[in-house]
Design a protein around this nucleic acid. Sequence first.
DNA 1: CCTCCTATTGATAATGGTTATCATTAGACC
DNA 2: GGTCTAATGATAACCATTATCAATAGGAGG
Lengths: 130, 130
Amino acid sequence: MTGDERRTAQKEAVRRALRQAPGFVSAGELHERLAAGGNAVGLATVYRQLNALAEDGRADTIPGPGGRLFRACEAPGVHHHHLVCEACGRAFELDAPDEAWIRDAATEHRFTVTRHVLEVFGRCADCPTY
Amino acid sequence: MTGDERRTAQKEAVRRALRQAPGFVSAGELHERLAAGGNAVGLATVYRQLNALAEDGRADTIPGPGGRLFRACEAPGVHHHHLVCEACGRAFELDAPDEAWIRDAATEHRFTVTRHVLEVFGRCADCPTY
DNA sequence: CCTCCTATTGATAATGGTTATCATTAGACC
DNA sequence: GGTCTAATGATAACCATTATCAATAGGAGG
């Protein structure tokens, strides 16, 4: 019934543009980049692809001012966090640190952990403080 | 010029309602709670107060499905994180763990850290898995 | 190459949370 | 009380995201 997925130029264009983006970008930004690069894709399609990618871990997403931001995931399926530049959006993936304390704290409060979010924000060397 | 801040019933009503809420709540939810409790406050004012509280650390905020969620901060000014129940919104504050690795990772990438976000989500003991 | 089926696209309308507007209300100091 | 102006609140404006639906185009089979 639903085992059919088609290969389209738009899907690849969105994925390529996302990979080429320097860091986290918004859906609108990606939409503009695509148009500027001659591969115009409908905004609705950009959102659809971005959501699909985020859904199965091929893209990371963080909430930003004025909407969600997306980034191509370098290591799909592997747990990791991000170091994001607040000025230019550039981001690095960080290996997960020791997270045993999370389980311990959860157990203490009789919680079952389902997920956790960790994002570090700052300024990269190329972006002056002002 | 701008050293004037007035004490109003609405401000206190919003703050009280936020403190009495069991966990993280949305602005709309708080608005309804206030109306239901006989202390109706305009929605715009609820947002204004919530933003003001979040701005200077007297309330914590996390992004949720369909908008931001707020909670009265138990320890204003002290760095901490949260353990949030995805079902009922109840939350506990967690003491910050060793975060030296964050600075180390940042230095490695020549970043200056300005802030970081860490939220743990799960199910509390009172909320069945389904 | 042609046809059919249907996943996908895209222009646009609809949705929904948040913010801006602005006339009115009401603290606080005289 | 009177005055000044911060604060409120009903409502409109905003804006990111999602839903709608007719038109397009993979791709499998003939």
